[in-house]
């Protein structure tokens, strides 16, 4: 099967029927939910925080972010703001009446929030899309750099971001983490079940300076 990233840009790939397929597949929901919980474990939030969800899609991760500590969301309930480039996906999120604020936005164009806005950011199965350059005016390097620079500035000092993504190959993995480091992040790549069909790659990013307080 071909990777969706190799065929069409995400706003075209996730049309209404694909969006619905994506959000109603219980297998995908389970994987997405497991990865969100793993990302939250890596974020290690102690109290209700303001979180950016990059590529929030239909709000599958957002629903977990809005849950309480007792329901299994560390430090929750959190308040989140989600970005997605697919209006069909956001339409599904609207129908579900998710609690986060939704933006139709392309992370490859930057992150339009003032400095130090977010305690944390999360991204599940999205940032490999940044490596698609959709036109001759855009390059993957330019899109990655606008995204990571914007993300870095919008996180508060001491903040963290965890991005789970599906790298096409080792070269792409390196290109993505190098772009994060260039933006100023401390970066580490973590792999769960490496070498298997269910291998998961997490890019764990930290913003230096400042104290981690409640």
């Amino acid at each position: 099967m071909s990777r969706p990233e190799d065929t069409l840009p995400p706003d075209l790939f996730y049309n209404d029927s694909e969006s619905r397929k994506y959000t109603t597949s219980s297998r995908i929901q389970k994987i997405q939910s497991d990865m969100t919980h793993r990302a939250l474990e890596l974020l290690d939030l102690k109290s209700p925080s303001l979180i950016l969800d990059v590529g929030c899609g239909s709000g599958l991760s957002g629903e977990i972010l809005s849950a309480s500590d007792e329901e299994g969301t560390p430090g929750g309930p959190h308040i989140w703001i989600g970005f997605d480039i697919s209006s069909s996906m956001l339409g599904v999120a609207l129908e579900k009446e998710v609690e986060g604020d939704l933006f139709l936005a392309d992370a490859g164009q930057g992150v339009p929030f003032r400095a130090g806005t977010f305690d944390a950011a999360i991204s599940i199965s999205a940032i490999q899309w940044l490596c698609n350059a959709e036109s001759s005016e855009e390059s993957p390097a330019g899109r990655l750099s606008r995204f990571f620079n914007g993300l870095y500035a919008s996180l508060r000092r001491g903040g963290r971001a965890v991005c789970q993504f599906y790298p096409k190959n080792d070269e792409q993995k390196k290109m993505i983490s190098a772009a994060a480091v260039k933006a100023g992040f401390g970066a580490g790549l973590l792999e769960d079940d490496p070498g298997t069909k269910s291998a998961k790659t997490y890019l764990v990013l930290t913003v230096g300076g400042g104290e981690l307080d409640g």
């Binding site: 939704l102 933006f103 139709l104 392309d106 164009q109 339009p112 005016e137």
Partner: peptide, 14 residues
């Protein structure tokens, strides 16, 4: 629209 803000920019403004 419906609470969702459109922040997609035309390429020349990015």
């Amino acid at each position: 629209k419906e609470g969702v803000a459109n922040f997609l920019l035309p390429a020349h403004l990015v």
